[in-house]
Simulated assay, not measured.
Amino acid sequence: MTDVQAAAYAAAVAKLLHAHGPAPRERLLAGCLAFGLSEEQANASVDRGLALSLYVVDPATGHLRAPQLLRREPTAFLGDGIIDARKDPDVARRLAILRVLLSTAPVAMWAVDQAGYIIYYEGKALEGLGLQDGQFVGQSFHEVFGEHACAPYVARAFNGEIVEVSWEYGGIIWQNWCFPLKNAAGEVELVSLVSMDVTEARHAEQELRERLTTIERQQRVISELSTPIIEVWDKVLALPLLGVVDSTRAAMVMTNLLGEVVNKASQFVLLDLTGVEAVDTATAGYMLDLLRAVRLLGAEGIITGIRPSVAQTMVMLGVDLGGIVTHATLRQGLQHCLRGLRQGKV
């Protein structure tokens, strides 16, 4: 009998122990004999399962039992040995914390040995999959999860790498940590995985991103509506400004307006301030920069609709409008443009 065959029979024994509880070695040997194995093969199979930690010997009764039952006993594995938690309060506290974590948090913890068998599998998060603690214990990891995306990450952990990765399984999004457990010689004996159900958090993140996208789209629409660029006549653009013009809005206005001047081959731009009730030094500076940029593109910038209060403020601020054509209304500014077009003036 090969080691692979012995491991397969050992896995079957582990399933029986998990399903029906501890049993004496003699009963398990009888079960193997019923499968047609010789006494030597039966003993080899049971011993193989012990070597692979598919099940353990209960020190109190001498019966074989699933390793999952060890969590109910006051013992813990540390390195190559077993420490009695009754003699080590610190270990007992850690086991208690682990029990609370696995029974209350949306996490699952599992472990795979070198032979590829699942030797530990439990946690509250398994309920979302309709699974029970220890359900896959004794089964081949490659048979249960071999086709799943997690397989290569487990292989990387067996090479000594700590891996953090997300994947979806059973309709649930899992955040996973795969890490190797080494013996005293530094060899990887087990790979342990901690999986956390982050489905709700991921859905909340997606919803938040969608809301932010919607808000940004709405802000762009509002900005475009508050600074519309209108082609009032062939080669004549009008830009009515409304409300407050800050640096962000001014930059957007300049980009959009200069683009339209080039696309439309415009010769005149009417900057209408009818909707502006107040200006400060910064706002005035934005408007002058805009008109200078328009002039660099070969078009003439004209200011219309300056309110008396705005005119007074601009004078007090010392804003120099020298060389810039101004008109009281948008209508008068358009008439100026039409005269310029008829005369071929730019």
Rank of each mutant, 00 (worst) to 15 (best):
I303T: 07
N256G: 11
K264P: 09
E260V: 10
A299M: 02
T248A: 12
Y286D: 06
R295P: 13
V294G: 00
L273Q: 03
V294M: 00
G259E: 04
G259T: 04
L239N: 00
D289N: 15
I302Q: 07
V244F: 11
A282Q: 14
M254P: 15
R249F: 00
L270K: 09
M314Q: 06
G305T: 06
G298D: 10
Q267G: 13
L297C: 08
T283G: 11
T281F: 08
L290F: 01
V279L: 13
M314I: 01
A251G: 15
D272Q: 10
L288I: 07
Y286W: 07
L288F: 03
G301A: 00
S309A: 11
A238G: 05
P308I: 01
T274H: 09
A251L: 11
V269A: 04
V236C: 02
V269D: 08
L296T: 07
T248S: 14
V261S: 10
L271D: 07
V269C: 07
A251S: 14
D246G: 14
V236A: 02
S266P: 15
V315P: 14
L241M: 10
V262R: 06
D246E: 15
M314H: 02
V253S: 09
V253C: 09
V262Q: 03
M314D: 05
V269G: 07
L270E: 02
V244P: 15
V236M: 04
N263Q: 13
R292V: 04
L237K: 13
A293I: 05
M316Y: 12
T304P: 12
L258N: 13
D289R: 13
A265K: 06
L241H: 11
E277M: 12
L237H: 14
R295V: 02
R249K: 12
P240F: 00
I306W: 05
Q267E: 13
L290C: 07
I303W: 04
A284R: 10
I302T: 04
V245G: 15
L290V: 01
V261C: 10
S309K: 14
S309F: 04
Q312S: 15
L291C: 05
G259N: 06
V253D: 13
R292L: 05
L288S: 07
A293C: 07
R307H: 08
S247A: 07
L241N: 12
D280C: 08
L271E: 06
R292T: 09
G301H: 05
V261P: 13
S247H: 12
T281N: 15
A265V: 03
K235T: 12
L237R: 11
A238V: 02
D246I: 05
K235R: 15
T313W: 00
M287S: 06
A282G: 08
V315M: 06
L258I: 04
S247F: 00
E260D: 12
D272F: 00
